[in-house]
Design a protein around this nucleic acid. Sequence first.
DNA 1: CATCCTGTTCAGTCTTGACAAAACAAACCG
DNA 2: CGGTTTGTTTTGTCAAGACTGAACAGGATG
Lengths: 180, 180
Amino acid sequence: MTVSEPTPAPDRPAEPSAAADHSLHAAEERFIEAMGLAHEEDRLPRIAGRLIGLLILSPDPVRFDHLAERLRVSRASISTNTRLLENMGVIQRVTRPGDRRDYFRINEEPGLLLRIADRYRTRQASAEEMKQALPPNAGGEVVVERLERLIRFYAILADSLQYVLGAVADGEGNSGSRSA
Amino acid sequence: MTVSEPTPAPDRPAEPSAAADHSLHAAEERFIEAMGLAHEEDRLPRIAGRLIGLLILSPDPVRFDHLAERLRVSRASISTNTRLLENMGVIQRVTRPGDRRDYFRINEEPGLLLRIADRYRTRQASAEEMKQALPPNAGGEVVVERLERLIRFYAILADSLQYVLGAVADGEGNSGSRSA
DNA sequence: CATCCTGTTCAGTCTTGACAAAACAAACCG
DNA sequence: CGGTTTGTTTTGTCAAGACTGAACAGGATG
Protein backbone atom coordinates (compact mmCIF):
# COMPACT_ATOMS: atom_id res chain seq x y z
CA MET A 1 0.00 0.00 0.00
CA THR A 2 1.47 3.32 -1.03
CA VAL A 3 1.41 6.04 1.55
CA SER A 4 1.30 9.72 0.84
CA GLU A 5 3.27 12.08 3.01
CA PRO A 6 2.23 15.69 3.43
CA THR A 7 5.51 16.86 4.96
CA PRO A 8 8.33 16.76 2.44
CA ALA A 9 10.98 15.59 4.87
CA PRO A 10 14.52 15.56 3.51
CA ASP A 11 16.19 12.33 2.45
CA ARG A 12 18.71 11.43 5.12
CA PRO A 13 20.02 7.84 5.05
CA ALA A 14 21.15 7.64 8.67
CA GLU A 15 23.99 10.14 8.74
CA PRO A 16 24.23 11.11 12.42
CA SER A 17 25.86 14.53 12.70
CA ALA A 18 29.63 14.29 12.98
CA ALA A 19 31.14 12.89 9.82
CA ALA A 20 34.10 11.27 11.57
CA ASP A 21 32.42 7.95 12.30
CA HIS A 22 34.16 5.33 10.31
CA SER A 23 33.23 2.76 12.89
CA LEU A 24 29.59 3.72 12.71
CA HIS A 25 29.58 3.25 9.00
CA ALA A 26 31.31 -0.09 9.39
CA ALA A 27 28.74 -1.14 11.95
CA GLU A 28 25.98 -0.15 9.59
CA GLU A 29 27.49 -2.20 6.81
CA ARG A 30 27.75 -5.17 9.15
CA PHE A 31 24.19 -4.80 10.29
CA ILE A 32 22.88 -4.50 6.77
CA GLU A 33 24.81 -7.54 5.66
CA ALA A 34 23.66 -9.46 8.72
CA MET A 35 20.07 -8.68 7.86
CA GLY A 36 20.75 -9.79 4.33
CA LEU A 37 22.04 -13.11 5.50
CA ALA A 38 19.37 -13.54 8.13
CA HIS A 39 16.52 -12.99 5.76
CA GLU A 40 18.14 -15.16 3.18
CA GLU A 41 17.65 -17.96 5.66
CA ASP A 42 13.96 -17.13 5.55
CA ARG A 43 13.80 -17.63 1.82
CA LEU A 44 14.01 -14.00 0.91
CA PRO A 45 16.49 -12.70 -1.67
CA ARG A 46 19.57 -11.34 -0.03
CA ILE A 47 18.96 -7.92 -1.46
CA ALA A 48 15.54 -7.85 0.15
CA GLY A 49 17.17 -8.51 3.51
CA ARG A 50 19.72 -5.76 2.97
CA LEU A 51 16.92 -3.46 2.00
CA ILE A 52 15.23 -4.19 5.29
CA GLY A 53 18.46 -3.56 7.17
CA LEU A 54 19.09 -0.27 5.44
CA LEU A 55 15.56 0.95 5.97
CA ILE A 56 15.65 0.05 9.64
CA LEU A 57 18.66 2.32 9.98
CA SER A 58 17.09 5.14 8.03
CA PRO A 59 14.99 7.50 10.11
CA ASP A 60 13.41 9.03 7.04
CA PRO A 61 12.05 7.42 3.90
CA VAL A 62 14.81 6.67 1.39
CA ARG A 63 14.67 7.45 -2.27
CA PHE A 64 14.49 4.67 -4.77
CA ASP A 65 17.72 5.53 -6.53
CA HIS A 66 19.52 6.09 -3.25
CA LEU A 67 18.72 2.52 -2.37
CA ALA A 68 20.39 1.34 -5.54
CA GLU A 69 23.44 3.51 -4.93
CA ARG A 70 23.86 2.72 -1.29
CA LEU A 71 23.45 -1.00 -1.76
CA ARG A 72 25.42 -0.89 -5.02
CA VAL A 73 22.82 -2.87 -6.82
CA SER A 74 20.91 -2.37 -10.04
CA ARG A 75 17.72 -0.39 -10.11
CA ALA A 76 16.09 -3.47 -11.52
CA SER A 77 16.87 -5.38 -8.35
CA ILE A 78 15.61 -2.53 -6.21
CA SER A 79 12.40 -2.47 -8.17
CA THR A 80 11.86 -6.21 -7.88
CA ASN A 81 12.71 -6.43 -4.22
CA THR A 82 10.90 -3.35 -3.04
CA ARG A 83 7.79 -4.64 -4.75
CA LEU A 84 8.27 -8.01 -3.07
CA LEU A 85 8.68 -6.48 0.37
CA GLU A 86 5.86 -4.08 -0.23
CA ASN A 87 3.49 -6.93 -1.07
CA MET A 88 4.61 -8.74 2.04
CA GLY A 89 3.82 -5.67 4.09
CA VAL A 90 7.38 -5.32 5.33
CA ILE A 91 8.06 -1.92 3.82
CA GLN A 92 5.95 0.94 2.63
CA ARG A 93 6.22 2.96 -0.51
CA VAL A 94 5.91 6.63 0.27
CA THR A 95 5.08 9.30 -2.24
CA ARG A 96 4.94 13.03 -1.88
CA PRO A 97 2.90 15.61 -3.66
CA GLY A 98 4.91 17.33 -6.32
CA ASP A 99 7.57 14.66 -6.26
CA ARG A 100 7.58 12.04 -8.94
CA ARG A 101 9.99 9.77 -7.13
CA ASP A 102 9.28 6.87 -4.81
CA TYR A 103 10.52 6.68 -1.25
CA PHE A 104 10.50 3.69 1.05
CA ARG A 105 10.29 3.22 4.75
CA ILE A 106 10.29 0.19 6.99
CA ASN A 107 6.99 -1.07 8.28
CA GLU A 108 8.33 -3.07 11.23
CA GLU A 109 8.36 -6.85 11.37
CA PRO A 110 4.86 -8.24 11.92
CA GLY A 111 4.35 -8.96 8.25
CA LEU A 112 7.12 -11.48 8.34
CA LEU A 113 5.90 -12.89 11.62
CA LEU A 114 2.48 -13.68 10.30
CA ARG A 115 4.03 -15.41 7.36
CA ILE A 116 5.96 -17.70 9.63
CA ALA A 117 2.93 -18.36 11.80
CA ASP A 118 1.01 -19.34 8.70
CA ARG A 119 3.66 -21.81 7.74
CA TYR A 120 3.33 -23.56 11.04
CA ARG A 121 -0.44 -23.63 10.87
CA THR A 122 -0.20 -25.29 7.49
CA ARG A 123 2.03 -27.96 8.91
CA GLN A 124 -0.29 -28.43 11.83
CA ALA A 125 -3.10 -29.02 9.39
CA SER A 126 -1.06 -31.62 7.52
CA ALA A 127 -0.40 -33.55 10.67
CA GLU A 128 -4.05 -33.36 11.64
CA GLU A 129 -5.16 -34.66 8.29
CA MET A 130 -2.77 -37.56 8.64
CA LYS A 131 -4.04 -38.37 12.08
CA GLN A 132 -7.62 -38.44 10.81
CA ALA A 133 -6.69 -40.80 8.00
CA LEU A 134 -5.07 -43.22 10.40
CA PRO A 135 -7.34 -46.21 11.15
CA PRO A 136 -8.14 -46.39 14.86
CA ASN A 137 -7.44 -50.10 15.04
CA ALA A 138 -3.95 -49.87 13.60
CA GLY A 139 -0.98 -51.12 15.54
CA GLY A 140 0.43 -47.62 15.26
CA GLU A 141 -0.29 -46.42 18.77
CA VAL A 142 3.12 -44.83 18.70
CA VAL A 143 2.35 -43.11 15.45
CA VAL A 144 -0.87 -41.59 16.73
CA GLU A 145 0.92 -40.29 19.77
CA ARG A 146 3.69 -38.92 17.64
CA LEU A 147 1.28 -37.11 15.38
CA GLU A 148 -0.54 -35.65 18.33
CA ARG A 149 2.72 -34.37 19.68
CA LEU A 150 3.55 -32.91 16.32
CA ILE A 151 0.18 -31.21 16.10
CA ARG A 152 0.60 -29.74 19.53
CA PHE A 153 4.08 -28.69 18.61
CA TYR A 154 3.06 -26.72 15.58
CA ALA A 155 0.02 -25.29 17.30
CA ILE A 156 1.99 -23.93 20.22
CA LEU A 157 4.60 -22.59 17.89
CA ALA A 158 2.07 -20.69 15.82
CA ASP A 159 0.36 -19.41 18.96
CA SER A 160 3.64 -18.22 20.37
CA LEU A 161 4.34 -16.31 17.23
CA GLN A 162 0.95 -14.69 17.49
CA TYR A 163 1.81 -13.80 21.05
CA VAL A 164 5.14 -12.32 20.05
CA LEU A 165 3.29 -10.15 17.65
CA GLY A 166 1.20 -8.79 20.46
CA ALA A 167 4.17 -8.34 22.75
CA VAL A 168 6.12 -6.41 20.17
CA ALA A 169 3.17 -4.23 19.40
CA ASP A 170 2.74 -3.42 23.09
CA GLY A 171 6.25 -2.06 23.39
CA GLU A 172 5.55 0.13 20.39
CA GLY A 173 6.87 3.63 20.80
CA ASN A 174 5.53 5.21 17.64
CA SER A 175 2.04 5.09 16.28
CA GLY A 176 3.05 3.51 13.01
CA SER A 177 0.40 1.49 11.26
CA ARG A 178 0.53 -2.27 11.48
CA SER A 179 0.21 -4.61 8.54
CA ALA A 180 -2.52 -7.24 8.58
CA MET B 1 24.62 -40.87 17.84
CA THR B 2 24.03 -44.48 16.86
CA VAL B 3 21.78 -46.46 19.13
CA SER B 4 21.96 -50.17 19.67
CA GLU B 5 18.75 -52.13 20.06
CA PRO B 6 18.71 -55.42 21.95
CA THR B 7 15.32 -56.55 20.66
CA PRO B 8 15.41 -57.35 16.95
CA ALA B 9 11.98 -55.93 16.19
CA PRO B 10 10.69 -56.61 12.68
CA ASP B 11 10.78 -53.94 10.03
CA ARG B 12 7.27 -52.68 9.53
CA PRO B 13 6.91 -49.42 7.59
CA ALA B 14 3.48 -48.47 8.90
CA GLU B 15 1.31 -51.15 7.33
CA PRO B 16 -1.73 -51.23 9.61
CA SER B 17 -3.45 -54.60 9.35
CA ALA B 18 -6.03 -54.67 6.60
CA ALA B 19 -4.46 -54.19 3.18
CA ALA B 20 -7.53 -52.53 1.72
CA ASP B 21 -6.58 -48.98 2.66
CA HIS B 22 -5.92 -47.11 -0.51
CA SER B 23 -6.96 -43.91 1.18
CA LEU B 24 -4.59 -44.49 4.05
CA HIS B 25 -1.72 -44.96 1.68
CA ALA B 26 -2.73 -41.85 -0.20
CA ALA B 27 -2.88 -39.92 3.04
CA GLU B 28 0.57 -41.15 3.94
CA GLU B 29 1.93 -40.02 0.62
CA ARG B 30 0.36 -36.63 1.12
CA PHE B 31 1.76 -36.31 4.59
CA ILE B 32 5.23 -37.34 3.51
CA GLU B 33 5.18 -34.90 0.64
CA ALA B 34 3.86 -32.17 2.89
CA MET B 35 6.72 -32.73 5.27
CA GLY B 36 9.09 -32.63 2.34
CA LEU B 37 7.78 -29.26 1.27
CA ALA B 38 7.58 -27.90 4.79
CA HIS B 39 11.14 -28.72 5.62
CA GLU B 40 12.31 -27.45 2.29
CA GLU B 41 11.07 -24.07 3.50
CA ASP B 42 13.45 -24.49 6.41
CA ARG B 43 16.42 -24.90 4.13
CA LEU B 44 16.56 -28.67 4.31
CA PRO B 45 16.73 -30.83 1.21
CA ARG B 46 13.33 -32.05 0.21
CA ILE B 47 14.37 -35.65 0.64
CA ALA B 48 15.36 -34.95 4.22
CA GLY B 49 11.85 -33.67 4.87
CA ARG B 50 10.28 -36.71 3.28
CA LEU B 51 12.54 -38.88 5.36
CA ILE B 52 11.24 -37.16 8.46
CA GLY B 53 7.66 -37.67 7.33
CA LEU B 54 8.17 -41.34 6.59
CA LEU B 55 9.91 -41.99 9.87
CA ILE B 56 7.20 -40.23 11.82
CA LEU B 57 4.71 -42.66 10.31
CA SER B 58 6.86 -45.70 10.99
CA PRO B 59 6.36 -47.23 14.42
CA ASP B 60 9.53 -49.29 14.13
CA PRO B 61 12.96 -48.36 12.84
CA VAL B 62 13.17 -48.56 9.06
CA ARG B 63 15.94 -50.19 7.13
CA PHE B 64 18.28 -48.11 5.05
CA ASP B 65 17.41 -49.74 1.75
CA HIS B 66 13.71 -49.67 2.52
CA LEU B 67 13.95 -45.92 2.80
CA ALA B 68 15.41 -45.75 -0.68
CA GLU B 69 12.71 -48.03 -2.08
CA ARG B 70 9.80 -46.40 -0.36
CA LEU B 71 10.86 -42.89 -1.26
CA ARG B 72 12.03 -44.01 -4.71
CA VAL B 73 15.28 -42.24 -4.32
CA SER B 74 18.90 -43.28 -4.75
CA ARG B 75 20.79 -44.89 -1.90
CA ALA B 76 23.27 -42.07 -2.23
CA SER B 77 20.60 -39.57 -1.34
CA ILE B 78 19.49 -41.66 1.59
CA SER B 79 23.04 -41.84 2.82
CA THR B 80 23.59 -38.11 2.51
CA ASN B 81 20.31 -37.08 4.05
CA THR B 82 20.23 -39.57 6.89
CA ARG B 83 23.68 -38.40 7.88
CA LEU B 84 22.50 -34.82 7.71
CA LEU B 85 19.47 -35.47 9.87
CA GLU B 86 21.47 -37.62 12.23
CA ASN B 87 23.97 -34.82 12.80
CA MET B 88 21.12 -32.44 13.40
CA GLY B 89 19.71 -34.80 15.99
CA VAL B 90 16.44 -35.22 14.16
CA ILE B 91 16.72 -38.94 13.54
CA GLN B 92 18.67 -41.76 15.09
CA ARG B 93 20.61 -44.51 13.47
CA VAL B 94 19.79 -47.82 15.08
CA THR B 95 21.92 -50.92 14.83
CA ARG B 96 21.30 -54.42 16.08
CA PRO B 97 23.68 -57.13 17.16
CA GLY B 98 24.19 -59.65 14.42
CA ASP B 99 22.71 -57.35 11.80
CA ARG B 100 25.03 -55.44 9.57
CA ARG B 101 22.37 -53.10 8.25
CA ASP B 102 21.42 -49.64 9.48
CA TYR B 103 17.96 -48.74 10.68
CA PHE B 104 16.58 -45.29 11.37
CA ARG B 105 13.98 -43.92 13.68
CA ILE B 106 12.65 -40.44 14.30
CA ASN B 107 13.96 -38.52 17.26
CA GLU B 108 11.11 -36.01 17.60
CA GLU B 109 11.44 -32.34 16.77
CA PRO B 110 13.47 -30.47 19.38
CA GLY B 111 16.66 -30.62 17.35
CA LEU B 112 15.07 -28.48 14.69
CA LEU B 113 13.54 -26.18 17.24
CA LEU B 114 16.83 -25.34 18.85
CA ARG B 115 18.26 -24.57 15.46
CA ILE B 116 15.54 -22.04 14.83
CA ALA B 117 15.94 -20.53 18.27
CA ASP B 118 19.63 -20.11 17.58
CA ARG B 119 18.93 -18.28 14.39
CA TYR B 120 16.86 -15.73 16.23
CA ARG B 121 19.45 -15.27 18.94
CA THR B 122 22.02 -14.52 16.29
CA ARG B 123 19.81 -11.86 14.82
CA GLN B 124 19.15 -10.42 18.21
CA ALA B 125 22.89 -10.13 18.70
CA SER B 126 23.26 -8.32 15.38
CA ALA B 127 20.67 -5.77 16.32
CA GLU B 128 22.29 -5.28 19.71
CA GLU B 129 25.68 -4.69 18.17
CA MET B 130 24.19 -2.12 15.87
CA LYS B 131 22.50 -0.34 18.73
CA GLN B 132 25.78 -0.14 20.63
CA ALA B 133 27.55 1.32 17.64
CA LEU B 134 24.96 4.04 17.26
CA PRO B 135 26.18 7.37 18.69
CA PRO B 136 23.92 8.50 21.53
CA ASN B 137 23.74 12.04 20.23
CA ALA B 138 22.54 11.06 16.79
CA GLY B 139 19.31 12.38 15.38
CA GLY B 140 18.23 8.80 15.00
CA GLU B 141 15.92 8.57 17.97
CA VAL B 142 13.60 6.61 15.76
CA VAL B 143 16.36 4.25 14.79
CA VAL B 144 17.30 3.48 18.37
CA GLU B 145 13.70 2.78 19.19
CA ARG B 146 13.38 0.61 16.14
CA LEU B 147 16.43 -1.39 17.04
CA GLU B 148 15.23 -1.87 20.57
CA ARG B 149 11.95 -3.15 19.24
CA LEU B 150 13.79 -5.48 16.93
CA ILE B 151 15.95 -6.78 19.76
CA ARG B 152 12.92 -7.40 21.91
CA PHE B 153 11.25 -9.05 18.97
CA TYR B 154 13.97 -11.58 18.39
CA ALA B 155 14.47 -12.17 22.09
CA ILE B 156 10.83 -12.97 22.72
CA LEU B 157 10.76 -15.15 19.66
CA ALA B 158 13.72 -17.21 20.78
CA ASP B 159 12.33 -17.46 24.28
CA SER B 160 9.00 -18.62 22.98
CA LEU B 161 10.68 -21.32 21.01
CA GLN B 162 12.49 -22.43 24.10
CA TYR B 163 9.15 -22.53 25.85
CA VAL B 164 7.59 -24.57 23.09
CA LEU B 165 10.36 -27.03 23.53
CA GLY B 166 9.42 -27.44 27.16
CA ALA B 167 5.72 -27.67 26.40
CA VAL B 168 6.21 -30.37 23.81
CA ALA B 169 8.47 -32.33 26.09
CA ASP B 170 5.86 -32.17 28.87
CA GLY B 171 3.23 -33.83 26.72
CA GLU B 172 5.70 -36.57 25.98
CA GLY B 173 4.12 -39.99 26.09
CA ASN B 174 7.16 -42.16 25.54
CA SER B 175 10.49 -41.96 27.29
CA GLY B 176 12.49 -41.35 24.15
CA SER B 177 15.77 -39.53 24.60
CA ARG B 178 15.94 -35.86 23.79
CA SER B 179 18.63 -34.26 21.68
CA ALA B 180 20.58 -31.37 23.12
C1' DC C 1 41.48 -64.98 -1.46
C1' DA C 2 37.27 -63.90 -4.26
C1' DT C 3 32.84 -62.25 -3.50
C1' DC C 4 28.86 -60.37 -1.73
C1' DC C 5 26.70 -56.93 1.14
C1' DT C 6 26.15 -52.42 2.93
C1' DG C 7 26.87 -47.78 3.10
C1' DT C 8 29.82 -43.62 1.51
C1' DT C 9 31.97 -40.53 -1.67
C1' DC C 10 32.77 -38.58 -6.16
C1' DA C 11 31.69 -36.55 -10.57
C1' DG C 12 28.29 -34.96 -13.46
C1' DT C 13 23.59 -33.27 -14.65
C1' DC C 14 19.82 -30.51 -13.96
C1' DT C 15 16.86 -27.11 -11.74
C1' DT C 16 16.20 -22.98 -9.38
C1' DG C 17 16.56 -18.45 -8.44
C1' DA C 18 19.19 -14.11 -7.85
C1' DC C 19 20.94 -10.50 -10.31
C1' DA C 20 22.06 -7.23 -14.09
C1' DA C 21 21.71 -4.85 -18.61
C1' DA C 22 18.82 -3.33 -21.73
C1' DA C 23 14.52 -2.52 -23.66
C1' DC C 24 10.38 -0.59 -22.33
C1' DA C 25 6.42 2.37 -20.43
C1' DA C 26 4.54 6.28 -18.38
C1' DA C 27 4.59 10.70 -16.69
C1' DC C 28 6.45 15.12 -17.02
C1' DC C 29 8.81 19.24 -19.20
C1' DG C 30 10.41 22.26 -22.64
C1' DC D 1 5.78 16.91 -30.23
C1' DG D 2 10.83 15.33 -28.77
C1' DG D 3 13.53 14.54 -24.83
C1' DT D 4 14.14 13.50 -19.86
C1' DT D 5 13.27 11.30 -15.60
C1' DT D 6 11.68 7.41 -12.99
C1' DG D 7 10.42 2.88 -12.32
C1' DT D 8 9.17 -1.87 -14.49
C1' DT D 9 9.66 -5.93 -17.30
C1' DT D 10 12.25 -8.91 -20.07
C1' DT D 11 16.15 -11.59 -21.30
C1' DG D 12 20.23 -13.73 -20.34
C1' DT D 13 23.99 -15.19 -17.30
C1' DC D 14 25.69 -17.23 -13.41
C1' DA D 15 26.08 -19.83 -9.04
C1' DA D 16 24.28 -22.93 -5.60
C1' DG D 17 22.80 -27.04 -4.40
C1' DA D 18 19.86 -31.32 -4.88
C1' DC D 19 19.98 -35.55 -6.80
C1' DT D 20 21.87 -39.61 -9.31
C1' DG D 21 24.89 -43.30 -11.12
C1' DA D 22 29.11 -45.19 -10.59
C1' DA D 23 33.20 -45.96 -8.36
C1' DC D 24 34.74 -47.01 -3.93
C1' DA D 25 35.81 -48.98 0.94
C1' DG D 26 35.31 -52.05 4.67
C1' DG D 27 33.61 -55.98 6.72
C1' DA D 28 31.61 -60.55 6.59
C1' DT D 29 31.47 -65.20 4.40
C1' DG D 30 32.26 -69.07 1.59
